[in-house]
Write a protein that binds this DNA or RNA. Sequence first.
DNA 1: TCAACCTATGAAATCGTTTTCACTTCACGA
DNA 2: TCGTGAAGTGAAAACGATTTCATAGGTTGA
Lengths: 300, 300
Amino acid sequence: MLNGNAPVSGATLERVQTAASELGYRRNALASGLRRRASRLIGVVVPDVANPFYTEVVRGIEDQLRGAGYLLVLCNSDGKIEKQTEYLRLLADQQLDGVILAPATPDLDKLEDAVASGLTVVLIDRRVASTVYDTVTVKNRDDARILTAGLLAASRRIAHIGGPHRTSTAQDRFAGFLDAHTSAGVDPDPRLIFETDYSEQGGYEAMKSLLELEQPPAGVFVGNNVMTLGVLRALSETEMAAAPKIVSFDPLPWWASSVHPVTTGSQPSYRLGRTAADLLLLRLADPSREYADVNIGNEE
Amino acid sequence: MLNGNAPVSGATLERVQTAASELGYRRNALASGLRRRASRLIGVVVPDVANPFYTEVVRGIEDQLRGAGYLLVLCNSDGKIEKQTEYLRLLADQQLDGVILAPATPDLDKLEDAVASGLTVVLIDRRVASTVYDTVTVKNRDDARILTAGLLAASRRIAHIGGPHRTSTAQDRFAGFLDAHTSAGVDPDPRLIFETDYSEQGGYEAMKSLLELEQPPAGVFVGNNVMTLGVLRALSETEMAAAPKIVSFDPLPWWASSVHPVTTGSQPSYRLGRTAADLLLLRLADPSREYADVNIGNEE
DNA sequence: TCAACCTATGAAATCGTTTTCACTTCACGA
DNA sequence: TCGTGAAGTGAAAACGATTTCATAGGTTGA
């Protein structure tokens, strides 16, 4: 009755509402949700909020959700499929209205389960092999190509430290890396290509290996910010006449002022979050809507 | 019945449970919560998740809550009392079991409302003028004293760029700053003392003012990490023979490798989060428990 | 054998909303 | 004046779990 759907007259409605506010009445969201089959809660599952990239994404989601009266339930999957699955299950149990998910793997099965249990899902950052989800990603391939081209302008020996090849982001960024080489007519040296797990330690070890080569690369393309932290650590441990130039995805605010300056594209993470929240709200309003696949650039 | 509280025999219970899992039965948390008057949801209200300090705190809370089967509802107050109040109200409406709050102001009234509406509250980071809350803070005064003493060992002209004096953290850190001066027998120069709002812009402007002095300070104590970003920006815009030494609260992982190195105490933010979550779980288990006021040091 | 007691079991009430439904009242046109 | 329709009202059902309650069944000791 208090949600305005009852066919009561204007005067009565008003009397009820003033009485309600005078008595300090507060609607019990649990009871309301049980009846309406909706909880006004949106889940967000990311690998790690401590990563500034995802932090900004979460921040963008929250700002957008707040306007629509939703609250945000935060979950860290640590990039592990088991944690992700467990969380999705928990979120479905809590009757969440929707979930914004940065999938740990492009594995579809687990996602299908989630959707089967009634969760509305929007994917961010990483793509999966399916077109039945709203998806928001950034221009990985283009940006990687541009960053790599910058390095190739100075030297032909460019290394690549990338994330796990099963993730679409790592694939796309590597593709951009190769694109730039093709354009420049350079054959990438396979000894300079490293695949790690997007971790600080992975970046550190890869960079160590590179520095131990007889002829270290003149430039290094690093696939994300966390690995770059490891790369910088490796660099700071090594004395060198000329350190390789570093370019990286996912900027951290301070990289310009680092001893070893890092060049990055501008990752529009905050906007990624807002866009994902928008898409989710749109789908909740109209479930039969066509699926959107938004690719966020750096323009604007 | 499915929560084990019913007086059913072992055999029957087991049969029901296997049947339930075979049918893929999932408990509806809304219905369960309505009846039990508990939602298995814990709210976290912080000024800004995009601040690495709070990010780590949130991460710690989440890790701890997950083990206990709770989910985390994240809210950014932007340090504004209105947003904080609105969120607390929303969280109470959602029948959250408890809230971990970094209070925007030491203002008690708004908090009392929240508690009156049935929310169990644990305070973090900032203290309020009341002893009826579990509180977890860090050793602000001691750390500030130690950091300042380090600067005073090199020079007697040390500046202070602090947060708003109404926050307990800013008060404590300033007190530590003064402690160090007293110990060293130095009178702080009031022209070197700045109070801002814990913002990047505030830090930037304060540092600009300092650099325009005839005799800039030899060292600067900065009250938090965000202001330090502004301080570094100001430094990078200015050519100097000898830049002032910077010490700051709340480390960012890269400050050691910055062009202008920043010295910090180690802010045990992750542990702060875990401890707060622990306290909240303890209080939920035993509401008549004595209130705890934990001060986390850097030991271990 | 029977009373007394304990345990297992199914039915029913409850949590606080929202929604449906049957019903009354009133106005209007025939 | 009566019938039709619209509009407002209050009661009751539903959401899905938990808790209480009464009852049935079984066991034990006198």
